[in-house]
Design a protein around this nucleic acid. Structure first.
Length: 203
DNA sequence: TTCCCGATTGTA
DNA sequence: ACAATCGGGAAC
């Protein structure tokens, strides 16, 4: 699925294999993909190292109580973006994964800076590379997301897109654990991260 | 219209 | 350990 776009073929340039894929299956498969964001200063790139799945029958999910103006993007077909504002200060970026009408998405929780690191350091007003994108709010800020203009938009070469993993990720490198910062369905093992990777938000 | 609280982070 | 800070959505 997500392995399809290898060899420089820009076929799935915009959407890997997440189209119509359940969030719980898409979340681990997104690990290793390179998140790319085109900014006025240059293109920043980061390897996705930590994700969480949220779906419609999940009490912790924004889509649980049905579609609203804010959550509408979650109900679009996979490949759309869902950006929300939380705690009065932070933005979080999700990649929508379900079929249209389903309300599923993967929260990007942490990433390893690869290219244009200086730009991300400026965005974060911080030099420590390990903390540039270790956490959903930090990740969003690092790639210049300071509002919700991207929510409801499609992954798109002109602004934000994904590139295939440089090295394929083996399943035994993926750690599964409960999600962070939630109170409902807190025991569900729907968080995924790369084993021993120093850029994850927490161990 | 009011009230509660959150898919977090930086500081003490 | 805790405050900061504000909007979504349930409740009244």
């Amino acid at each position: 699925m997500l392995q399809s776009a290898r060899g420089g073929v820009p076929s799935s340039r915009v959407t890997p294999g997440i189209l119509g894929l359940a969030a719980i299956r898409a979340a681990p498969q997104l690990l290793g993909w390179v998140l790319c964001r085109r900014l006025p200063e240059g293109v920043v790139k980061l390897k996705i190292v930590e994700t969480e799945a949220y779906h419609q029958d999940d009490p912790a999910s924004h889509s649980f109580r049905g579609q609203t103006a804010r959550t509408a993007p979650m109900f679009r077909v996979g490949g759309h973006l869902y950006v929300y504002f939380t705690y009065g200060r932070h933005y979080a970026l999700n990649i929508v994964t379900g079929p249209a009408g389903r309300g599923e998405a993967v929260l990007l929780r942490a990433a390893e800076p690869l290219e244009s690191i200086e730009i991300m350091q400026q965005n974060r007003k911080l030099t420590d590379v390990k903390k540039l994108a270790a956490g959903p709010g930090r990740l969003a800020q690092a790639i210049g997301i300071n509002d919700t203009t991207l929510t409801g938009k499609l992954l798109d070469l002109l602004s934000i897109y994904l590139e295939p993993p440089k090295k394929s990720v083996r399943s035994n490198e993926i750690i599964v654990s409960p999600r962070i910062g939630i109170t409902k369905a807190a025991h569900q093992p729907w968080r995924f991260y790369l084993k021993d990777n120093p850029f994850v938000s927490k161990l």
